[in-house]
């Protein structure tokens, strides 16, 4: 565990906390894409299949449980909670899941570290996570008034990916045999997807104006 990895995990955790805070206290999920949240729930379910098979550390186990529980509860809130679900912007959240799910599954069957069920699911989760933010970015672009929490949420998610890249660079130089093309390429693609958002987020923060994305 290095500092970049820890900082990455913490911003990831922070993004979830920000989202839960918005849902719990403001009882609103305005500007949040249910499609993206459902994709994340699938990502974590597929990746953490090893939760009860391989024990790595207490930290690892707890974090996995937190991400699993939080992603599924967010989906539950957005679909079932009688107040929260009314704030969901269904009309603008039109991205089709299947256009990302199917290609990711095919890619995982073709490109994986080993052709076993768990490894294919692991690769699938890596590919899916890389593009799972797309419905969220599309929704933000269609939202006139992006509230602060929705903006911070996406920013922290992007920061988490960027920090993971630094973590890989660090691990590459400090650990033997640390070459992982699948997670590296998927991680870089994922971070690049945020580039445009980052630009507008940081500009609005520097100029102290409300975040607004060009249509």
């Amino acid at each position: 565990m290095n500092l970049f990895r820890l900082a990455g995990d913490m911003t990831h955790l922070l993004s979830v906390v920000v989202l839960l805070l918005k849902i719990h206290t403001i009882k609103s999920c305005a500007g949040i894409s249910l499609k993206t949240q459902e994709l994340y729930a699938i990502v974590f379910a597929a990746r953490y299949l090893d939760l009860f098979v391989h024990f790595m550390s207490l930290y690892n186990t707890i974090m996995k449980l937190v991400f699993l529980a939080s992603s599924f509860s967010i989906v539950w809130y957005m679909r079932q909670h009688k107040i929260v679900r009314r704030t969901y912007d269904k009309e603008h959240d039109t991205f089709r899941h299947q256009f990302i799910l199917l290609p990711c599954l095919v890619l995982a069957l073709l490109i994986n570290e080993k052709f076993t069920f768990r490894e294919v699911m692991w690769a699938f989760s890596i590919y899916l996570e890389a593009v799972a933010i797309l419905p969220q970015l599309v929704l933000l672009q269609r939202t006139r008034n992006i509230d602060n929490l929705a903006g911070h949420y996406v920013f922290f998610l992007g920061a988490y990916r960027a920090l993971y890249i630094l973590n890989w660079i660090y691990r590459y130089f400090t650990e033997p045999h640390f070459v992982h093309w699948i997670s590296w390429i998927a991680g870089i693609v994922q971070t690049l997807l945020y580039a445009d958002f980052f630009y507008y987020y940081i500009t609005s923060w520097k100029n102290n104006v409300k975040l607004e994305l060009p249509a």
Binding site: W122, N167, W168, R171, P176
Partner: peptide, 10 residues
């Protein structure tokens, strides 16, 4: 798993 494995990441 051996050292240098990225599967320990979240």
């Amino acid at each position: 798993r051996p050292r240098g494995d990225s599967h320990d990441e979240l």
